[in-house]
């Protein structure tokens, strides 16, 4: 691929790639556009693409109907809390697997991943009962723990793959230089793995943000995040396209913006560290 392609060929590639990119992006674009239309324009036939009367009315209606900020705050706490907690537990585990591998390391890792294949519905009711018993139902703390647990295998796996790229000699050098295990992880490993850790944090934040089984089934009011906020538009309000679009945009905007600003780490993270 090192050769310079002809300009003509490049133009053709560009056109095709932009067309496909646009098609893939279109549902999101269309949702954002529709959120600024009036309800009548939103269902106009034929559909209006750009020349409509831009309005912010839908946003204020959605905000009035349900307190957006509260859901947003819950989403941030749940996604952020579970990701940070998970990473704190995963870093030592990943250190062990990457730098002190044993015969069982791979088995443990695969076992961890396999816990993610356990169907959540299979254990929904027990968890539900436990949550009632422990008073965790509809609480942020309970959800943070659950989201942490379901993402923990992915976090461990990603960190493991990133850590493995770090030469063990550098950690041994730290040991020779008199660093304790804690200092070795804190001052040498973690700073060296910052790009990988950032990608891991980012991806798992997004996975937790978008998680829609436990967040829907274990929350009601107090701890409900944006997934629940948007699920309340299922029907029949879903027929109000403009308002649905406004609510959707509000639910996905924080992540889209986050993704926009941290593209590089994200692209790295999206591959789960598994492909170089």
């Amino acid at each position: 691929m090192a050769r310079a392609a002809t300009t003509q060929r490049k133009a053709l590639n560009t056109a095709l790639a932009w067309l496909i990119g646009f098609l893939i992006f279109f549902p999101i674009l269309w949702t954002i556009l529709t959120s600024f239309k009036t309800e009548a324009q939103a269902i106009a036939s034929p559909p209006i693409f750009l020349n409509f009367d831009w309005t912010l009315e839908n946003y204020s209606v959605v905000q009035e109907r349900s307190d957006y900020m509260r859901f947003l705050w819950n989403s941030i706490i749940l996604a952020g809390g579970s990701t940070i907690l998970g990473t704190m537990i995963a870093i030592p585990a990943a250190w062990s697997m990457a730098f002190v591998p044993s015969k069982r390391t791979k088995d443990i890792l695969l076992w961890m991943l396999s816990t993610k294949m356990l169907p959540a519905v299979g254990v929904l009711y027990p968890i539900y009962l436990l949550f009632i018993q422990l008073g965790l139902l509809d609480s942020r703390a309970g959800l943070v723990i659950v989201l942490m647990l379901i993402n923990l295998p992915i976090i461990v796996w990603m960190l493991y793959t990133y850590f493995r790229e770090i030469p063990g000699e550098i950690l041994e050098a730290a040991r020779m230089d008199g660093a304790t295990l804690k200092e070795e992880i804190l001052y040498v490993l973690t700073p060296m793995a910052i790009p990988g850790i950032a990608s891991t944090l980012l991806l798992n934040f997004i996975l937790a943000w978008n998680e829609a089984f436990w967040t829907l089934n274990l929350t009601a009011v107090d701890a409900a995040p944006l997934t629940a906020f948007i699920a309340s538009y299922s029907s029949p309000e879903g027929l109000f396209f403009a308002k649905l679009s406004a609510a959707s945009t509000m639910a996905i905007a924080p992540i889209l913006i986050l993704g926009w600003f941290s593209q590089k780490q994200l692209v790295r993270g999206l591959t789960f560290g598994a492909v170089k």
């Binding site: 893939i24 538009y233 639910a251 992540i255 889209l256 993704g259 593209q263």
Partner: peptide
Amino acid sequence: RIMVIAPFFVMPTVSALV
């Protein structure tokens, strides 16, 4: 690339509703 990645950020409830 951004346009192609974007759907991954959309939460399942939103994408299903949209």
